[in-house]
């Protein structure tokens, strides 16, 4: 008998489509139309990144076993989270797309789950998705920290050289290391 993850592989495209639609539902209607329609990776980078990330997540979810590992999923989640981190979302909104995968899976695979009595497997899979959400949270924080760091850097760059020229700061790099 097939397992839930097997169905996930078989119905991959349907799950992906459902998930993608749910995620686009978090944007304004006119925006969703644009991001849905064009699949040119350069004219429509958002769709491109989302799709690449989501496809990887679903594929790997089917094969990763009970514990998803960060090394595999972080780059995939990153594709999506990095974009959503700069799109005026609250932290919960920005990372919520992971939970929408649960909904997509239930929507698409529910008949199979009910038929083959795969509820235990479903619970396990959903726990895995919860783990992904935690990864997403990490990435989100990293992105936000990065933005803060970039802002600080920009200010620093503006004044750094002026301070050095005004001899207001001690410039160690100019004098060489202590061991010289």
């Amino acid at each position: 008998m097939l397992k839930l993850v097997d169905y996930l592989v078989l119905e991959q495209q349907a799950v992906l489509d459902a998930w993608f639609d749910l995620v686009l539902g978090t944007y304004a209607e006119s925006t969703a139309v644009l991001w849905k329609k064009r699949d040119d990776p350069f004219a429509n980078p958002v769709r491109h990144r989302f799709e690449a990330g989501m496809r990887g997540i679903v594929t790997n979810l089917a094969t990763c076993g009970p514990v998803p590992d960060a090394a595999t999923f972080t780059p995939l989640l990153d594709e999506i989270v990095r974009v959503r981190a700069v799109q005026d979302f609250t932290p919960s909104q920005a990372t919520s797309f992971v939970f929408l995968l649960k909904k997509a899976i239930r929507e698409v695979l529910w008949p199979k789950i009910a038929e083959d009595n795969l509820f235990v497997e479903l619970l396990a899979l959903e726990s895995s998705i919860d783990v992904l959400a935690l990864f997403a949270l990490d990435i989100y924080c990293q992105c936000r920290e990065k933005i803060a760091a970039l802002r600080i850097d920009q200010i620093k760059k503006q004044y750094d050289r002026l301070l050095k020229r005004a001899n207001l700061v001690c410039d160690l790099s100019a004098e060489g290391g202590e061991d010289q």
Binding site: R38, D39, D40, P41, F42, A43
Partner: peptide, 17 residues
């Protein structure tokens, strides 16, 4: 015009809207 990336393969194709 827009450049389209073919899914699997190194070639960049051109298509347009």
């Amino acid at each position: 015009t827009s450049v389209k990336l073919q899914q699997d393969g190194p070639k960049v194709g051109y298509s347009s809207e």
